[in-house]
Amino acid sequence: MSGPEYPGSPAELPGVRVDECTMGVVEIIARPGRAGELVEIARGRGIELPTFGRIAYSSDRLALCVRPDRWLLLLAPPAPAASGPDRVDWWESAAQAGAAVDQSSAWATLLLAGPRSREVLARGCRLDLDPLLFPVGLAAATIMAQVPVILAAVPSGLLLLTSASTARHFREWLAAAAKPFGLMPQSIISVADLCRSESG
């Protein structure tokens, strides 16, 4: 009676998976008018900084851009003793064009996967996540469950970045929203896992 959205009982639902990613995060900010320069320097080092609203990824890192002339670079997690910006080895040559700020502890990163994941997010996300409009490769900053969230469509699912202080709140909200769709237990994954396709 209720239309095509929720066929079947919970037992038949294909399920949604939420995994937690551990990673290092560096925020890269171009100084006014220096974005092009910064992108070129990064490219020279083999790091692709995507255009606004998009992601760029290689086997072990992912860059996303949801603020003009700013990027979040997701990398393997830092060693506990390391200080952030030093880890971006190309930084010295780029310093005049911008700033790099370690944000590894600022974000909690979740990966939502499964065929119903966009329906789950519709419980709190105001963006139109139709796969035609938000395909793999796009990223956006928005508000979800009353907190700021950055989301990106990556090959393995939907990547959700939420502030560390609200991570537990957001996880609890997501778990509640996903429950009727069948929520699979979560595991810990790495940046490299994000860039593999969902079927893999």
């Binding site: 609203g53 105001r126 963006l127």
Partner: peptide, 11 residues
């Protein structure tokens, strides 16, 4: 102009 059509709550 950057993010597209967004709800007032974000502003």
């Amino acid at each position: 102009p950057w993010c597209g059509l967004r709800d007032e709550i974000e502003f």
